[in-house]
Design a protein around this nucleic acid. Structure first.
Lengths: 161, 161
DNA sequence: TCAAAATAGTTGCGCCTACAACTTATTTGC
DNA sequence: GCAAATAAGTTGTAGGCGCAACTATTTTGA
């Protein structure tokens, strides 16, 4: 392999560090949610998406899009959340193939109880660790990378946590 | 929940984008390795670590440290790689509790065959997407985040992907 | 010296997820 | 208007991974 196929020292350094972040950051998020709320990050994100939707209701396929999940994965996670009383399923009247998922009162309370600790962690680990300028830089860099990773911006719409 | 518990618009924006990167980047890496080499990123990384070690050999616990994996996880992955002929296990003479994992000739060839495509992807998605300054910024930002995420820098030593 | 504690590694078990097959309902095109 | 194609969800099957239990070996300390 010729040298130009490899990365320069600086490039390699940046990549190694960034790769470590990619591995550690999600693990830290998941660990905190598991410990404090007995939720995976994906479960929390799913509940959060429902909590922001009109009537706290979304069709399964729409919710799958917002959470960037496959439908089989979402289906099982919703089954689990339904068993715990956080979500309710109902057939959609307009299209009887479809299923609407709705956040229950207990589900809403779960989100309300879980969000502060999660936001705190994000603030501690990300926001307060960087200067305002660095956070802006990271935001711009992320935007550029997103264009390459997700050209159709399927993940674009997702807001909050 | 009072406002100061939440994130400002700018902060939220940065976090949402960065969170999307955390989800998409590893998926893109894994997909390419799976498609072109039938390896998970973790398997490739494990082979790569062995390929750089003296005698292409490392003790399981040391290898677990370098790959940031638990010993049970590594043990099964090595079993799988052993079954495919890429790695060989041997009891360590100095400490008979320990096991040495060694890259086979076939394993070396697998790394050599796999590395260029993987490096190309990293160059395409990361290096060439950013300016040299941005890559430097990302490197510095990653270093700061690493300090928070991994204070004992257990992942510090890892080089080359 | 030798029993107790610690260490290295493997394996049983359960959960999560992907892929594919399947069911039911809707849309399309002849 | 109806058969074929498509779409929405669910479930069977298999593989990866974490935790905890287990075996075997080494270290510690009374």
């Amino acid at each position: 392999m010729t040298d130009d196929q490899w990365l320069t020292g600086e490039q390699l350094n940046a990549w190694v560090r960034f790769a470590a972040i990619l591995q550690l950051f999600p693990a830290v998020l998941d660990a905190q949610l598991q410990r404090e709320s007995d939720l995976t990050h994906f479960e929390y994100f799913t509940l959060a998406m429902l909590s922001e939707a009109p009537e706290q209701t979304l069709r399964m396929s729409v919710l799958a899009g917002r959470t960037n999940a496959t439908l089989p994965r979402l289906s099982r996670v919703i089954s689990h959340l339904e068993a715990r009383g956080f979500v309710r399923r109902a057939p959609c009247r307009l299209d009887r193939r479809a299923t609407d998922a709705t956040l229950t009162e207990a589900g809403w309370e779960k989100v309300v109880a879980t969000a502060p600790g999660h936001v705190d962690l994000v603030k501690t680990v990300l926001i307060e660790t960087l200067t305002a300028k660095e956070l802006g830089d990271l935001s711009a860099i992320s935007a550029k990378l997103l264009k390459k990773l997700d050209p159709e911006s399927r993940m674009a719409a997702t807001a909050i946590i």
